[in-house]
Design a protein around this nucleic acid. Structure first.
Lengths: 212, 212
DNA sequence: GTCTATAAGCTGATAGAC
DNA sequence: GTCTATCAGCTTATAGAC
């Protein structure tokens, strides 16, 4: 690394600049997802993002043209994860195992990225104004595919005759709830704050409660 | 009505003034819950509330001292409904009927008051900063009571050995999801917008999917 | 790439005439 | 009770020196 001459480094696209850019952008995004998730789009200020990122406000604007650009970048990042877990749902797999893996992965990823999960939930709660047409279409396509797998299981007599669409809604609702509405869950479980063990319990209870 | 003299009416506390106050306050609250639910606390402006209420901004301040006061009043209103539906869960009732009534009422009330439901979900999503200590305690008490009823059913062998706390979380998560994340649900069901029939389907599918 | 200074506009909230 | 006019403060975003 740092094989460039001083002259080259001062020009654009050098290794150093690239690394600084990557580090600063990552820091800004990491801080932003946390702030947006707890204070919303309008409640979050660029000054605050700059302060918590350890950068002057003008530098935040150097990396992202507007506040909305930061928000949209985060939407795109989170969006990629929406369907990643759905890869477990394949018609050739054993239903119990596939759904078990899916539920456990959903719960674990929302636990590990709680701010991201809440951020996305907030966006959906407000109607998903920042979601592009393509992103919406992609969600529909992925969902339809997963439903087709369940329908095949039903046709083969390996799964109860439930509407797969409502079945997935139920899974999403339940797995998201633990991370997104943690204060309610903690109050219900009568614990000061949620730990990994609570999420593990949740996975087992969900799988036990669903009739399949 | 209107039994007062003109002189009395001009003083404070008259029927007319009371009626005007009630009407204006109700209008402000009705408009506010819709705006807060789609734009959040900081994204909603008093000017906008005033405009959509058909009042000058100063009049909104005449009825509510601050923006937070409007928000808190709404929280209190919604809060009363949280446990109202839980009255169905009583140990002497038949589990299937009690839970069926509960799920159906939850879905129907969230459908009819979707803005209110989303408003409260948004507040919980952000950690419930506006919830008072007393309100939190009340939630815990009501939940504990409902769990006790389920535990009695289990002890009597009328209900599967599930953790009642996770069971209720699952019910809340699922029933709330349809109103709160309507765009996702509509996309999944492949309908342009949700109708009453979709909520009715949801109730039956949820009850069919849960193993009890 | 970094940072200070500042513009331009909007916000919550109030004063005070009617 | 109603409404106009206004303030003080904070916001996003930019200009321009280093």
């Amino acid at each position: 690394m740092a094989r460039q001459s001083g002259d080259e480094r001062r020009k654009s696209g050098g290794d150093n600049e690239g690394r600084i850019r990557a580090r600063n952008e990552a820091k800004i995004l990491e801080v932003s997802v946390r702030l947006f998730s707890t204070k919303g789009f309008d409640g979050t200020t660029i000054s605050e993002i700059a302060e918590e990122s350890g950068l002057p406000k003008a530098n935040v604007y150097y990396y992202f043209q507007t506040k909305a650009a930061i928000y949209e970048r985060l939407i795109a990042e989170v969006f990629d994860d929406w369907d990643a877990a759905l890869r477990h749902i394949r018609p050739e797999r054993e239903p119990r195992e596939a759904i078990g893996d899916y539920v456990r992965e959903k719960l674990e990823s929302s636990r590990r990225n709680a701010a991201q999960s809440r951020f996305f939930a907030g966006e959906l709660l407000r109607g998903g104004r920042f979601l592009s047409r393509g992103q919406r279409q992609h969600m529909r396509d992925v969902t339809r595919e997963a439903c087709a797998a369940v329908e095949q299981w039903i046709a083969e007599g390996r799964f109860p005759a439930l509407d797969p669409r409502h079945f997935f809604i139920m899974i999403w609702a339940t797995t998201q709830f633990y991370a997104d509405f943690a204060p309610v869950v903690a109050a219900t479980l009568e614990v000061p704050r949620l730990r990994k063990a609570d999420f593990d319990d949740a996975a087992e209870q969900i799988l036990k409660a669903i009739h399949f």
